[in-house]
């Protein structure tokens, strides 16, 4: 049974902002992550503010510039099946359709997907680790086969759990946020907090701030997008290794490359090394090889997750070959 909490379901956005600001309130969107966090006492709120009644935050629409504005309450299924998402950014639809299971996709929302808590088993279990305010990371010396190989700085070695964030980050999307101090927008690439900046925080959002929409810029000519997720089972499992590609192609030459990994680091992990090795080049075997080696050169695997290094390399190679085939077709 969950701990006791009061529950408020506002009808309007400004009510929600006021309610979340007051007291130690937590936001409920689809609830698929929140309920588990409440049960495991990871989130200790006695007040739940459900935004599920805010219908205006639901749905996908095209912007005048030709990009998309996706409401934070749009379900993951809604994104996976949306014709505009599939047409403009197939990689985002792929990522959405790889999240969790059908039932969880029917309920989970985009906003919740971006703001979900990490899945480290010490953190979800009874360990009072660094991220929960304790004084040590249990995973660094412990069971870490599913943990990070990049960006952990030996502080906290979680991998960021979201499948949609890497694609949105690669596409240069921004979240629109509203809070007590008014509105602001934040690049998805800057939304998540690396452990060296603050090991207790997952996002840069302040208490009381709500994501209302995610804006994706219009797809440039020659945009190729994809998302690949390697995992143990086809349902439920989080990424062992994943990659979002957003490549701007001119014929068979890659003009611009964004490569963001999932299952890799405490935040969606932009591989600048891979991007640099790819930009300006054609997708030849030689380039692909260089890109894959560049991508994993800086990896800092832990005792039990060394397998991830060749896994990332192999997966990226397959993804780049697919991109090449697609361009030829």
């Amino acid at each position: 049974m969950l701990p006791k909490f009061s529950y408020i379901r506002p009808d309007k956005l400004d009510q929600a902002v006021a309610q979340i600001q007051a007291g130690n309130a937590a936001i409920h969107a689809g609830g698929t992550d929140l309920l588990g966090c409440l049960r495991e006492r990871i989130i200790k709120s006695e007040k739940i503010v459900s935004i599920s009644g805010l219908e205006k935050l639901r749905g996908v629409r095209e912007t005048v510039e030709g990009g998309l504005r996706i409401g934070a309450l749009t379900t993951i299924t809604g994104m996976a099946e949306d014709p505009l998402v599939r047409k403009k950014y197939p990689g985002l639809a792929m990522a959405a359709s790889e999240v969790a299971s059908p039932q969880l996709r029917n309920q989970g929302t985009l906003g919740g997907n971006l703001c979900q808590k990490p899945r480290c088993w010490y953190y979800r279990g009874e360990f009072h680790c660094l991220r929960k305010g304790g004084n040590q990371c249990y995973a660094i010396e412990g069971e870490n086969q599913f943990h990070a190989i990049f960006g952990h700085d030996n502080i906290c070695v979680i991998t960021h759990p979201s499948d949609t964030a890497p694609v949105l980050s690669a596409l240069g999307a921004k979240v629109q946020v509203i809070g007590p101090g008014g509105g602001r927008n934040i690049a998805v690439a800057d939304l998540h907090v690396p452990p060296r900046d603050d090991v207790r925080a997952e996002t840069v959002l302040d208490q009381g701030e709500i994501i209302t929409h995610v804006d994706i810029p219009p797809p440039p000519a020659g945009l190729y997008t994809s998302y690949r997720k390697v995992r143990a089972r086809r349902s439920w499992d989080f990424a062992l290794a994943g990659a979002a590609l957003a490549l701007v192609m001119d014929g068979d030459r890659v003009v611009r490359a964004s490569i963001v990994f999932s299952g890799a680091a405490p935040v969606p992990w932009r591989s600048r090394e891979a991007e640099q090795a790819l930009a300006g080049n054609t997708l030849s075997d030689d380039t692909i090889d260089k890109v894959c080696r560049a991508a994993t050169a800086g990896a800092k695997p832990l005792r039990e997750n060394r397998y991830k290094v060749p896994m990332f390399r192999g997966m990226l190679e397959e993804e780049l070959r697919k991109a090449r085939l697609q361009e030829k077709a």
Partner: peptide, 12 residues
């Protein structure tokens, strides 16, 4: 639409 009733609050 199929959903998990264990992950849905009755009030929702």
């Amino acid at each position: 639409v199929p959903r998990y009733s264990c992950m849905t609050l009755a009030v929702e």
